[in-house]
């Protein structure tokens, strides 16, 4: 068991009811857990949403996060999918300074990252990128040299590959 702090990805299937997000964020706040990112959307079943949390902490903390999430009545299933067997993606929109002199250079970088330019104005470009957190971070870093105006990130969504995944919050943990 690792005791150092690292990022963990947890997903939760929850009832889609008013106040659910409030209950969850209240629990995180009260217990002092750190959420690096949170993404919510409808699941494959109507009436149920899926949430992806990226949580900073050691193994024990993350285990407690999962247990406390599970304790909430409206939370149906909690999974830790931190292992490399998961696909995690986030989408970001980045508005970067650009004029004719550097547009080509930026477009090259965008190309390498398989990102897209989705809007152009006289002195800015808007870049859309999808990827895991590290990829988005690197692109933002690179673009920072040109001057980044605004970054809008969705937060990570994640899904494990294949079918076998381990529940963190089973009672016998």
């Amino acid at each position: 068991m690792s005791s150092f702090s690292e990022k963990h990805t947890i997903t939760a299937l929850v009832e889609d009811r008013p106040g659910v997000l409030n209950r969850i964020s209240s629990m995180f706040r009260r217990r002092g857990y750190n959420i690096s990112s949170l993404a919510v959307g409808q699941s494959e079943t109507s009436g149920l949403s899926r949430m992806t949390f990226v949580v900073q902490g050691d193994t024990k903390t993350v285990e407690m996060v999962a247990k406390n999430l599970n304790k909430l009545v409206e939370v149906i299933k909690v999974l830790d999918i931190s292992d490399e067997n998961a696909v995690s993606r986030e989408l970001a929109l980045i508005r970067v300074n650009s004029d004719v002199s550097n547009r080509g250079e930026i477009m090259q970088i965008v190309e390498i990252f398989r990102a897209k330019i989705v809007d152009v104005s006289k002195d800015t470009l808007m870049v859309e990128v999808t990827g895991d957190e590290d990829k988005v971070d690197s692109l933002v870093d690179l673009l920072a040299t040109f001057g980044v105006h605004e970054v809008m990130r969705t937060g990570t969504v994640a899904m494990s590959r294949g079918v076998a995944f381990e529940s963190l919050s089973g009672p016998e943990n």
Binding site: K60, E63, M64, K67, N68, N70, K71, S169, P171, E172, N173
Partner: peptide, 18 residues
């Protein structure tokens, strides 16, 4: 009966939830 109490303050050798 509460899994979130197990290991919260004290580590244990044999946890039993129920």
């Amino acid at each position: 009966i509460d899994p979130s109490e197990i290991g919260k303050n004290i580590s244990v050798d044999v946890p039993i939830v129920g």
